[in-house]
Design a protein around this nucleic acid. Structure first.
Lengths: 346, 346
DNA sequence: TTGTATGCGTTATCAT
DNA sequence: ATGATAACGCATACAA
């Protein structure tokens, strides 16, 4: 390959003594081009390492062939550990469909302006909305801008129609809580995520529904909403284990929190499963595997990477065929029995 | 704002009864435009929600105003948990400088082709090379393609000149190992990362250098190279604790592995710090904080998010002023005493 | 099956 | 201080 020369379509067509049109058609696999010409063109392109100018092609076509992801992030804020796996799944799909992935890291106060720019500048053909909030302003904004989008997660139910992929978090948590109750547990703690996140609200609703159905009380001292990381899981678990009447079971909203909870439990000399039962929501992050023949934790699980794939696929389909209306998808989390739950011993 | 209409430069200039040239100059803050005209143009642009077409501007300027990041990823492979924090740091800098971040997820076998496309298509003005390997083919490739790049990490020393930002991993590990030796430890385990990664090789070199300096033997049974995640840390630690002569201290290459090691240690009824000392390399991932007044772990630490910022800054500087040659930067990891190390008890 | 001419929406050059 | 006109490098409607 002759990489010292950078060729454009004009150079290449002159070299081949063909028109730019024909060369363009040959490279883009138009059917009317003769096989002979096509192979001649393609091998020349290969030889010279020709690649069409991205921006020229996009300008001519009027399509960005790119999807945007916006990551709101204050200076010292935590970046959501789920993000990488979601991106990996979505990025995989983009690559297959020859779409580009455009990621913007942005201060919260500039976020609206960013969405406007994304829509009007033609940088992207659509966006994925991450971390939906209660009553999220982005849904009406994106509708106004007429920029195709799909939400990973859900806003509250009062929000008008929009496309999303979400887990049935309420059902997942009510079901798992009932499982603990069936095992005889009555004092059950809820280690939840921040309640600005709609998934956390739904999980709490599911938890409460199960408890109330069985006439059990939700002790506020056993419930917390906080960032789902190891240290917070550790601290809260330490705290509730020191209560006069500690819980015998816990519902935990993430693997990272569960790691912290486990550390706290072991530190006070108790055993997960035997002395205290745990069910954890497992997003199957690639670096936090809860697998094996019998997994460490009894868990609710769904793959966030698969979610990324599905969201990306749906959005691309819609962009390519706008009459193909974006769906509302709700997945049920899988419930997997592991080693962290046992019948309550008396 | 009137968002129903999408205006381009021509529309806007006609509305203002000015030439496109003047409008463009006003919006791009050229000095020759009168203040009166500029403010008139800008407020009209604001009013109509005008944003210049991204691809048209890029085509005209001949610059992509974008930086690429390539994430090689097989179907079921793990995505590096460090990636998100690095991206957060880099993305922050891109936003400040009005650069776009372009991320490609790619199968390893298509990676070379992707780099060629990135370079020739003008999609990006430069790339960040992640996870450098021993004798990494990407360095000569990117040089051949004349695409500006900077490596996060380092290849082996035989590789010709290239720009990078790396930690002095060898010194970090030799220093920390010596600290353990000074505390009286002699049987020290090394829980390292995969040895295809150059940082793991350097860390091992540092470990061995310290041990040999003090005439201590590096028992192969106490050393492992594996993916740095919780389950592998757990399994290896379980294994070495069951040896007839278990180690009294461990050097661990990541926080995730250390979480696993801690779980194994607690499970056999021993205490981190008291019964076994641990020093961990802490990349300060935002979701794995090892902070507090006295941190849980004695650690070597450096912020991967800061690394992302610095790498991005350097690359942008070089792209904007190519005579501003890309540097080779080596940071020393900070050594912080926490609660996981103690003098060996006899 | 191939070629000609034009458009995409900017920025840059050269006038005025 | 402002304007007319020409790139930028493709894709595409229309012609042959």
């Amino acid at each position: 390959m002759l990489n010292s020369i950078i060729m454009n379509l004009e150079d290449l067509s002159k070299h081949l003594k063909l028109s730019q049109t024909t060369v363009s058609r040959a490279l883009n696999d138009f059917p009317e081009v003769s096989e002979k010409t096509r192979s001649r063109v393609k091998s020349a392109a290969q030889k010279f390492g020709y690649r069409p100018s991205h921006h020229a092609a996009r300008l001519a076509k009027g399509k960005a062939m790119a999807i945007g992801h916006v990551v709101p992030l204050a200076e010292h804020a935590m970046i959501n550990p789920h993000f990488a796996d979601f991106i990996a799944g979505a990025g995989d799909v983009y690559a297959q469909h020859h779409y580009d992935m455009h990621i913007s890291v942005v201060n919260s106060d500039e976020e609206e302006s960013l969405y406007r720019d994304l829509a009007r500048s033609g940088k992207v053909d659509g966006v994925v909305v991450h971390a939906p909030q209660i009553n999220d302003y982005r849904i009406p904004l994106l509708k106004e801008l007429q920029l195709p989008f799909i939400v990973h997660g859900r806003c509250d139910d009062s929000t008008p129609d929009y496309a999303f992929l979400d887990i049935n978090n309420k059902r997942a948590f009510s079901r798992a809580t009932e499982y603990l109750i069936d095992l005889g547990h009555q004092r059950i703690a809820l280690l939840n995520g921040l309640e600005t996140m709609s998934f956390a609200v739904r999980r709490k609703l599911g938890f409460i529904a199960a408890m109330e159905k069985h006439n059990l009380c939700c002790d506020p001292a056993l419930m917390v909403q906080q960032e789902m990381i190891e240290p917070t899981g550790y601290a809260f678990t330490k705290q509730i284990l020191a209560l006069p009447e500690p819980p015998t079971a816990m519902m935990i909203a993430s693997m990272l929190s569960a790691m912290g909870a486990m550390r706290a439990i072991q530190e006070v000399g108790k055993k997960v499963g035997e002395d205290i039962s745990i069910i954890v929501y497992d997003d199957q992050l690639s670096f936090l595997q809860n697998s094996g023949e019998i997994p460490l934790f009894t868990s609710l699980r769904s793959s966030i990477r698969e979610a990324g794939k599905t969201v990306a696929t749906q959005l691309i389909q819609h962009i390519q065929q706008p009459d193909n209306v974006l769906p509302q998808i709700i997945w049920d989390a899988e419930f997997v029995i592991g080693n962290s739950t046992q019948r309550l011993q008396h």
